Amino acid sequence: MNTVEAKLKERVKELTCLYEVTSIIVNADYDQIEATLEAIVYCLKRAWQFEEVTEVFLKVGKCTVKTDDYKPTMVCLSSKIKVFNKLEGEVLVGYPSDKYSLDDFLVEEQTLLNNVALDIGNLIERKQIRDSEALTRRQIERADRLHILGEITAGIAHELNTPLANILGFAELLAEKMTDQQAVRDLEKIMDNAIFSREIVKKLMFFACEMPQEMQRVKLIPIVTNVIKLLAPSLRDKKLKLVTTFENEDLELKADTVQLTQVMFNLIMNAIYYSPENGTITVKVLDTESHILLKIADQGDGIPTKLEDKVFEPFFTTKPIGEGTGLGLSVVHGIITSHKGSIEHSKNTPKGTIFTVDFPKLN
């Protein structure tokens, strides 16, 4: 390139590239970031001196785009892409190595590549800021809804407790005076349903944080064993096999016995509900250096991907109407959190779900 005209032509190509890249970024759809990066790649291809053999490769984060004939063996100029001063990727522009060398690149082309890499980094920064703001907004909205829901729930629970206690009490008094066995059986049904309703109210009060905790040192394995004994009829009804693994029979943690029992009951009952007949449920209590892990695995259909984020939301349930309140796992989540623990779910192999509860060990 010796003529002024040729040099001017190259400068025009470089300026055109910068203008086009800026326009692409200004009009970028943050939800279609890969398409934006692909458009930038082809802008770069047109800006190089030997554009007919120029190929471009761009990688940032988990996203990779390149022109059709790019090969790793090419001789390339490169520029790093930084996002918030952290190296997140790079962009390379290359020629075939059998015909070209680094000497065939222009100094101005390296400057252009550095500017484009900087623009790409700024684009990714703005996307991350937008995504972070959206996530924060959703979390605030959810926290606000849960706060309102908690207040409403607490009020409902208090209002229901008194009439339920009256129904149960008067039904018990009538049952003592009745001689007609059919009438006694009918009253027993009333009492059973009142007790069932009262348990739902208790769950509401747990959710609304109205039940005081009584924290003390408790042994975990006996609690798990007692819950399994209580659920033995349900296991038999579905011909389920229960496999238990307890690494340390003497494991202790600081917990509210009633709440811990409720956690175990809900998780194992859920596993029973979603397990197919003749399936296997696995309950493991693992002893690590600083934590106690409880794993409950079933062989059901698993949690659909689109519902994974909703599992612990209050009043969300996949059970048919009348079979679930949607309070079980939200209450479990609240109890475990209040015990400074955590709960998460993952896919079982070959199918099903594993719920893992992580409790800190006693110091």
Rank of each mutant, 00 (worst) to 15 (best):
E5I: 13
V12P: 00
K13N: 11
E14G: 07
E20D: 11
V26Q: 11
N27K: 04
Y30E: 12
E34G: 01
L37M: 05
A39R: 12
V41E: 06
L44F: 01
W48R: 12
L58A: 05
L58M: 05
K59G: 00
V60M: 01
T64G: 00
D69P: 04
M74F: 14
C76V: 06
L77I: 04
V83T: 07
E88L: 12
V91Q: 01
L92F: 04
Y95E: 07
Y100I: 02
D103M: 12
V107L: 12
Q110L: 09
A117G: 07
L118W: 09
D119I: 06
L123I: 00
Q128E: 11
R137K: 15
A143S: 11
A143T: 14
D144C: 00
H147T: 15
I148M: 10
E151R: 14
A157S: 14
P163H: 05
L168V: 15
L168A: 15
G169N: 09
F170L: 08
A175E: 12
K177R: 15
Q182G: 14
Q182H: 13
A183P: 01
R185S: 13
I195Q: 09
F196W: 08
R198S: 14
E199W: 11
K203L: 10
M205C: 09
F207G: 07
F207Y: 12
C209V: 15
E210A: 11
K219L: 04
I223W: 05
V224S: 04
T225A: 12
N226C: 08
L230N: 08
S234D: 09
T245A: 06
D256Q: 01
V258E: 15
V258T: 14
Q262K: 11
I268Y: 04
I272A: 02
N278V: 04
G279C: 04
I281C: 03
I281T: 03
V283H: 03
K284R: 07
D287N: 11
T288G: 00
H291N: 10
L294M: 02
A297M: 10
P304L: 09
T305N: 11
L307S: 11
L307V: 04
P314S: 05
T317S: 13
P320C: 03
V332K: 00
G334N: 13
I335N: 01
S338E: 14
K340S: 15
I343N: 03
E344Q: 11
E344C: 10
K347E: 11
T349G: 03
K351P: 02
V357Y: 05
V357A: 03
L362S: 06
